[in-house]
Amino acid sequence: MSRIKSCFDALRRDKRKALIPYVTAGDPQPDVTVPLMHAMVAAGADIIELGVPFSDPMAEGPTIQQACERALKHHVSLRNVLAMVREFRTRNDHTPVVLMGYLNPVEVMGYAEFARAADEAGVDGVLTVDLPPEEAQALVTELRPRNIDTIFLLAPTSSAERIARICAMSSGFVYYVSLKGVTGVASIDVSTLAAKLQQIRALTDLPIGVGFGIKDAASAAQVAAVADAVVVGSALVKKVGEFAGQPEKIEKAVASLVKEMRIAMDGVLLPK
């Protein structure tokens, strides 16, 4: 069984929801990332989403674009990111790690080699922002035999027919992009979200993660009430950016926001 599935099974038993923080690997410098991953786990993260920096991140708002630019100043490559996961695994064997990024670095490495290297490093899931299921068969074919989950995006613009097709290609969980737009700009509307999740649940048994527009503990808690997982990216990356010049302060700033979200999420779900 994949680490992601075990993670969601355990959370379901405990009646809790997954908290999935995202940071861009190598932002603002490579040595920050692995300790930051451990700190986020200690603060209550269930799954870590690690962004692979790309020169042309088409779906990202300014916050994550700048994170990519900071990381790329240090030439952080896909191989470097895999090395970070391998290092993380030397001290943590249970927290799933999902790579999130764009297709081109994977194309350059080659699908088979990427699947082998990701498996060896201890990657649990892969989410490629610019790879819809129509184009994804070849990559999925390489990843699945290695027990690496393939996570795809669902959007407010996805038709019922597309939702069904996307879920059929997904494993681990599906990621619902809660609003039209780029990362880190607008705020989430929870009542519209609840209705959409109901539609998705009718079409799949996979856990549903929700991301885009979750800015603070309050919105994390609201989303946790209706989704299976809460993905937080730009709000954390903004903290990393704020302290880009004082990297020793990043861990504490990010971990404290993760912790606030954890407490708020558990608060709405668990009896006091």
Binding site: D130, L154, A155, V177
Partner: peptide, 9 residues
């Protein structure tokens, strides 16, 4: 078509 899901529709 290599685009984010939101643009597929």
């Amino acid at each position: 078509r290599f685009i984010p899901e939101t643009l597929m529709g």
